[in-house]
Each structure stands twice: as structure tokens, then as C-alpha cells.
Nucleic acid binder design. Sequence first.
DNA 1: AAAACCTCGATTGTCGACAAACTGACTGAA
DNA 2: TTCAGTCAGTTTGTCGACAATCGAGGTTTT
Lengths: 229, 229
Amino acid sequence: MLVKAPEEGTLADVAAHRLAQSIVTGELAQGQKLNEAELAERFGMGRGPLREALRQLEGMRLVKRIPNAGARVVVLDRKTLSDLYAVRETLEGMACRLAATQMTDDEIAQLNTLLDQHEEQIKQQGGKVYAQSEGDLDFHYQIVRGSRNQMLMDLLGSEQYQLLRMCRYRTSRNAQRTRPALLQHRQIVEALAQRDGELAEMLMRRHIHGAWHSISEMIDKEEVGQASA
Amino acid sequence: MLVKAPEEGTLADVAAHRLAQSIVTGELAQGQKLNEAELAERFGMGRGPLREALRQLEGMRLVKRIPNAGARVVVLDRKTLSDLYAVRETLEGMACRLAATQMTDDEIAQLNTLLDQHEEQIKQQGGKVYAQSEGDLDFHYQIVRGSRNQMLMDLLGSEQYQLLRMCRYRTSRNAQRTRPALLQHRQIVEALAQRDGELAEMLMRRHIHGAWHSISEMIDKEEVGQASA
DNA sequence: AAAACCTCGATTGTCGACAAACTGACTGAA
DNA sequence: TTCAGTCAGTTTGTCGACAATCGAGGTTTT
């Protein structure tokens, strides 16, 4: 399961989850004002839990809150994404290096199985790229988990993860990078299987750097993410 | 100013700030249960704002919340600290590399001025190490700011920063590392002044690695942070 | 005596209403 | 015309009370 349990305990948690989903998918546009009363009404709850959810979303950097002026959906401008990918390149590289020594043979084998599924999906339909896109994040997260570093899992899992998904939803339309990406994934798993941490780190860094290059070009062409819905 | 404005706009924000301070200084022990009604009473506010503050603290990883069972102060065990320092080594190394090309000459000069102040503090009193300890964090944060990467500033500034302070409060008692630390700081600034990003990164990583080594030994000797107040 | 169950107290979760702050428009004067 | 001031309307911030849930302790049963 990629996203956490849809229905958790408290209303604030389910509100946070639903809001996150709406923001990531673009249903709530970037920079959009978030009206507490309206959202509470929509979710069928009071404003209390909703306010708590907003505080939580703020911690995930999905919304920006200004005292006495409400909350707005975060705006992913070029600089923000550039910074995000730079940090991600470093952190996921680190995760890869650790994973090379920490993952079990079984887990690495499962990674290959996961990539087999991706390959199958790509063969079946080049159009529905999004599924692969989410799967891609899944691949990355499996490696992060393999690092056995809880802080890394928190950072890349809970927080940046959502921003990444948000970015993906806007850039997943170009499919031309899925095949080379799959190849790079294979190479990374191969390095992990050989327990070559340095190589795995380098390959992962290159992989993410390439992804940013590709997305950067898209942003240049059509201001993706600025004017939506 | 190291800590943000003590009195901010909403009650939830000031509650979050005061709670963070109490947790960092150990006034609230690790693993301690946080009773909403009691804290609200102590801060002279309703439970609403306090609950929002707890949600915010959860985002900063200072408390852990369990649905229907309340919030507890996070426990910094050995593994957690180890993971934290590993991530910090990577991220601050990255910050240093970027800062070497991004900081202005003026900013680098100010870093040296800051170190002069530290040196003065150390000469005057070897006992009151804490001030230097906080100043140390200030030094690190100035470099992070110099990276011009907002995500990096958020990660190392708002969140890990608090955990670091928390750790420091428990380990600042041994002063023997302040002098070599100061020397290492000087070397880092020197590398920055020469615009040698790779060297600056390496020195910073070594510096943080050493800090962890020192703290790790302390944990081995006396279980620091486990049994307090 | 040990284990399961039940009851009660305490704590968390939630709601509705009130107070404070901001937004925007309207009015009037320079 | 333009700018400052004022004034409603809207939205956020806060509180107190009520409902739901959990944990502890005692009681009953095997």
C-alpha cells in the first residue's frame, strides 16, 4: 500500500489524508486558499479537527499557514522543485549506499520482482504512465526502507514523498523517460545485489539528477504547475 | 536570534514554542506523557490551541502521538541519534558544498567573526559550555543558510535543529571537545573562503562524524538521555 | 490461583458558539 | 483623481461542554 490507511482513527487524521490527496492530485490548485468552514462542511466534520489537519499538513510542507490569514496550498515553483530534487539526490544516494549493506537478499530479489511488474505495465500500455509513476516512487521508497535509517524513512517517506507525488502528477504526462528510468532502476538493483554501495549511490544520484533535468526542461517549455485547473 | 520570536501570533504557536523549549531543555522528560488538560491549564489557554500545538510538535518529531492515547515526548535512544547524525552528516556536508559557491565574501567574513566570539567565550570560561554549544548550532545554521537551499534550511533548521538541541542539552557537559571543534570550524571557513566546496564538504562531514563519535562514547559510559530528571 | 470480564474514572476527540482579526468597499476630503 | 479613514461582512482564533474511548482496578468464574 502506497498511501497510508485511508480511514484512520481521528477525524483530523482522515481530514489530513483526504486533503493531502486533493492537494497532490491538483484537485486543490497550488496557492489556493483553504477555507476552514467550507472544508469542514465538505468533510462533514467540525472546524476543530480540520484545523488540526491543517497544522499537520503544514508539517508536511503541503500547505503554508499565515496567522490570522488562513492556509494556502503550497506553490511548487522552479526554485522549490530544484531545491527538492537536490536534497533528494543527496538523501536517496545516501539511502542507496546504506541499503547496499543493509538489505537482505530477499528484499533485493523483491525489488527485481517489482521492476518486472513495472516492465509489464509499460509493455501493456504506454499511455497510462501514472501507474508506473507511483510505482516508481514505490521502488524508491523500498530502497529507502532498506537503508534501515528511520530518520531517512521519515524524511523521504512522509514529507518529501508527498511533494514528489504532487510534482509527478503534473509531469507524468511525458512518457518518454519511463524506459530509460526502468533501465537505471535495474542497474541500481544490480549494484545493490553486488553489495556495491558506492556504485549504487552514484547510479541513484545520476538517476535523480536525470529526472530533474527532464522535469526542468518541461517546466521551461510549458510553465507546468503554475497555471492549472 | 536562535530561537524564533517567543511570542508569536496565535496561542497554538506560542504553546508549540514553549513546549518545544521545555522538551529540549529536558524540563519535560523523554517519554513523558503529555496531558492536554494539564498543559492547557499551565499555559492558561484552552485545549484547542494546545492540541494544535501538539500536532505541530509531532511534525517536528519532538512528540509522538497515538490516537486515543495522547502524546508523549519523543525518546532519543541510541539508534535514533545514530540515524540523526548520519543524516545530518550527509545534509550538512551538502550544505557546505553549496555554501562554498553561494555565500558572499561578507557572509564568510561574518562566520570568522562568529568564531572569534566563540573563542573568546571559551577563553573566558571553560565551564559554561552550553553557550558555545548553542553558538555551535548557530555556526552550522549560518552555513546551511549560505547554501541558499530553502528545503535544506527547513530540514536542518526547523526540525532536526530541535532534536539536535535536545541532544546537546544532555551531552553538553563534557567540554573537552569544544577546542578541537573550534579548530575544525576554522578549517571549514577557510575552505569556504577558498571556494573549495569538496574540501568544505569533507571537513564538515568529518566534523560531524567526530561529534557523533564523541557523543556515542558518552552514551556508552553513562546512559545519557535515558534516565533524566 | 490465574484468567477473563465488567465497571468506573480519567483522558481524548468533537462540536457549536462567541470573540478577535482581517478584507474589501464605500465615503469623504485634499 | 487619489488617498486616508471608516465600517460592515467574512474568516480565523478561542473557549466551554458533551460524547467516545481507553486504562485500571476489582470482581467473578474456571
